[in-house]
Amino acid sequence: MWAPGRERVGSTPFSSDQGGHISSETRINDRIRVPEVRLVGPNGEQVGIVRIEDALRLANESDLDLVEVAPQARPPVCKLMDFGKFKYESAQKARESRRNQQLTVIKEQKLRPKIDQHDYETKKGHVSRFLAAGNKVKVTIMFRGREQSRPELGFRLLQKLADEVAELGFVESSAKQDGRNMIMVLAPHKNVKAKPKAKETAEPAES
């Protein structure tokens, strides 16, 4: 806890009830050098405008820190809190959030517009497996030569695939032409749980 003459500087962001923000530049305790402040109690209650000497005395008597949460206000808004406890709890929450964070892996499947049924079923199986695992799938139709004059073949094939895997995923990005390719992105339904990943990546297609 704080005692007069002892300074502490926090480094954890904090949004107070007053809309303030705590950072490494936030003034705490003896570092607050203004004549008066608008004081907020530890439970968010409004104490009112008080002299800085009185605010520091209340912080010391309560065994708490005086933390400036809205320096741009006139007068600045300060809050009584256990800043050490706040930093610890914020760090715990940040670690828990990172641990639970789930970022989607983007898989890719490439098809030809005139793919035979056996290859199509194989590719569809890969797409279904990826969606079931909670991954997005970028489906690419590759046109060659005269096939480029028949974009409807690609549209029909992508629509057919989307319809047949509809129980596992939905069309997040509709089919669109991209040079010689046509691309559609499928995403898993929200009730499909993905495995936690460190970052979003795009993986090559499986043959």
Rank of each mutant, 00 (worst) to 15 (best):
H189N: 06
G179Q: 04
K87D: 13
A94P: 03
R112S: 11
S128V: 03
R27D: 13
G44P: 01
V192D: 07
E68V: 04
R98S: 13
E172W: 02
V105Y: 09
V50E: 02
Q109G: 12
G19H: 02
K190Q: 13
V192R: 07
N60D: 12
S62Y: 07
K136V: 10
H126R: 05
R129K: 14
E25G: 09
M142V: 15
Q109A: 15
R31N: 15
S23M: 07
K160D: 02
K190R: 10
F86Q: 08
K136I: 08
V37A: 11
A205M: 01
L58F: 04
N43A: 15
S207M: 02
Q177E: 14
Q72L: 12
I32P: 03
V50S: 06
M182Q: 11
Q101F: 07
T140S: 12
S174L: 08
E89G: 04
S90N: 14
A202I: 04
H118R: 10
Q92S: 12
A175Q: 06
V127F: 03
G154D: 05
F130G: 13
A162L: 01
A202M: 05
I22Q: 02
E203L: 03
D30Y: 04
D63K: 10
K138L: 15
K195A: 12
I52V: 15
Q92I: 13
R144L: 12
G44R: 05
K79H: 08
P4Y: 01
E121W: 05
N191V: 06
E96K: 08
A132R: 02
R33E: 15
K195Y: 05
G48E: 06
K193P: 05
A162M: 02
P204V: 03
E25V: 14
A175W: 01
I49E: 12
R99S: 14
K79L: 12
E164N: 05
R33S: 13
E172V: 08
K199L: 07
K87M: 10
I22F: 05
T201M: 08
Q101N: 09
E167K: 03
V137C: 14
K93H: 09
G20K: 01
F143I: 08
V165A: 06
P188Q: 04
T104Y: 09
P151H: 06
A202D: 08
R98E: 15
D54I: 09
K79R: 12
G179R: 01
M1K: 00
V34L: 09
V192M: 10
G134Y: 00
L66Y: 01
S207L: 05
A59H: 00
E164V: 01
E200H: 01
T104K: 11
R57M: 14
R51N: 14
G48H: 03
K85H: 09
I28F: 10
N135Y: 06
R180L: 14
G134K: 00
M81R: 01
R129I: 11
L186C: 10
F14T: 11
A202F: 05
N43E: 15
P42Y: 04
T104R: 10
Q109C: 12
S207R: 01
A91M: 11
D54G: 07
K190D: 14
V139E: 04
